[in-house]
Design a binder for these strands. Structure first.
Lengths: 329, 329
DNA sequence: CTGAAAGCGCTTACAG
DNA sequence: CTGAAAGCGCTTACAG
């Protein structure tokens, strides 16, 4: 690869001048600028990225930590982030923790190694005390998942409200025996959704039966298992709020296998509004999360704080969730 | 952030020695090694990535160009690649072309800028002549999509065989009126699949009717449209080979809406074995692509050629496809 | 408007 | 076993 020196030699100018042309500095004689431009073209010159980064102490790169790229929620989030980032002249480096604490911390080390200018935590495996030390080394913001202990800017959805409106919808449909299947127990988001469920139930004076509460569900298989347990009950719930669309899909699929009618015998509501919610039959009523907005806001805030170079103050941006009604309720 | 110099000062040693410890060089006095190790620990020292890259002329990073991360096929492929890469001590940088030629070329520029050691092209927007100039700047290999003109190493699936076994399966089931819905017309893979379809049909002396051929289909919506067109026909096909599972899903969904029975009235076979194929009802018979294998082989080959630093010779690695039978046929 | 020189933070011959 | 020095390829005061 050609270097700036070769371009300088070819044009008979100094590398300083070449650098000025590269960086669109003013005060370069127009004819010389042209000379440099054509020389760069002829040599196929592109500035060495490592050299620029080292010299400039900036990488124009943001790390996004997620837990699983094959989860459509995250691939859409990353997609949205990448779109905004590239508009703002930044690159995204995708860090998949694979739900592993060590991997998550290893990705945070990128900040120390100055390989990225900032980190967006879209999933959270570690406790706040383990994340905290890294905040010295650059901006970290949390997006989607969160830990309310964390003194980080957060771009998140109002999960409690999501839990509430979903449950309210079931109640409005006349259900009184409502079950609840929560998601990953480890994360706060899961608990906030449940709080919303509880609030709606209490408001309507409905009982929350322990046998109707199914914690820690992640995918299709969990949904199938839940249906089997419900099916085996004496007094079955007539509706269930599932922690995610995949779990809801599993419940519905298994219900079909047992010729159990959704929504007539069991109404099912999901969460996330993933593509699958519209694909299976019946379509899944669900809570839509504004993924695009969340992703672009997170990146905007990140780029902002990189540029300002100020320490980020703790603030929480709550985005609204929306009920999407389909045929499963 | 602490630098190597600070570690050196703190220990009273030279940065040369510190560097030797960092890089696990032999010939460092054990007590001094310990001294350095604790100093690094205390300072939270991590070597500056840009400096190492500049100095070493290596980035330990591979660019993977795909067309759309929200396509589950690609997110699984990237997932597999990342797994292998991290085992081999490499990072993946995700480059989403968004089906855009310019963006694809911009990503190839990373090679010139020495921001990556090599590029894996998992999708292909540009013609070979536009890609070719970049091969001077580092290893490029193609994976999944391909252009047979290209003098690149390729890790690809045997699409022609895939088209053949899928069609053969329908013929074995007794179908004689078989329709075919192809994928993106621009790519060679699509044409090879169709060749397989044609070969199976000719072998069985079955006619290929022009009105049964639907080119350029990408998603659910295309599938729905195809079903409507079939439904409107006088003489309908009794089976259709769809270019992808999403198209197949669209056909099935729309068929349901019209109370048209799959597979009794219309057998449907997809391609890719995406999660959706097992989710909708009836499950979609499909052709499984060995995504994991393709991803890991591509990365292995890439790391190999980075290390060897030899120019890559043109060779083609054909991976086998497999028929997965579900309820849609 | 232009260039010589310093320096970003490393690693690696080279000399000892 | 250890260190001084050069250099990777840039950019940016500084001086002119």
């Amino acid at each position: 690869m050609a270097t700036i020196k070769e371009v300088a030699e070819r044009t008979g100018l100094s590398s300083t001048t070449v650098s000025r042309v590269i960086n669109n500095h003013p005060y370069v004689d127009e004819s010389k600028r042209q000379l440099v431009l054509t020389a760069m073209e002829e040599l196929g010159y592109v500035p060495n990225s490592s050299a620029r980064r080292l010299r400039g102490q900036r990488t124009q790169t943001i790390a996004v930590i997620i837990s699983r790229i094959v989860n459509p929620f995250f691939s859409h989030l990353v997609d949205a982030m990448e779109r905004t980032a590239s508009e703002l002249g930044y690159q995204i480096i995708l860090c998949d923790s694979r739900l592993n604490k060590k991997r998550e911390l290893a990705h945070l080390e990128l900040l120390k190694a100055k390989q990225v200018d900032g980190v967006i935590l879209a999933s959270l495996q570690n406790k706040w005390e383990d994340i905290k030390p890294y905040t010295r080394y650059g901006p970290i913001i949390s997006c989607n998942e969160y830990d309310s202990m964390a003194k980080l800017p957060m771009i998140i959805c109002d999960q409690e409200a999501g839990g509430y409106i979903g449950t309210k919808h079931l109640i409005d449909r006349g259900h009184t025996h409502i079950a609840y299947a929560g998601g990953a127990d480890r994360i706060e988001l899961t608990h906030d959704r449940k709080k919303g469920f509880v609030r709606a139930m209490e408001e309507a004076n409905l009982p929350i039966l322990p046998e109707f509460m199914f914690p820690s569900n992640y995918g299709i298989e969990d949904g199938k298992r839940i249906f089997q347990r419900i099916f085996a009950m004496e007094n079955r719930p007539t509706a269930i709020f599932a922690g995610g669309d995949e779990v809801a899909a599993g419940i519905i699929q298994e219900a079909k296998r047992f010729d159990y009618s959704v929504p007539r015998q069991l109404a099912v509501i999901g969460f996330d509004n993933q593509p699958i919610a519209d694909l299976i039959d019946p379509g899944i009523t669900t809570i839509d999360q504004p993924i695009e907005l969340m992703g672009s806001r997170a990146v905007e805030l990140m780029v902002d704080s990189i540029k300002q170079d100020r320490t980020l103050s703790y603030n929480k941006e709550l985005l609204p969730l929306q009920l999407i009604i389909r045929q499963s309720t």
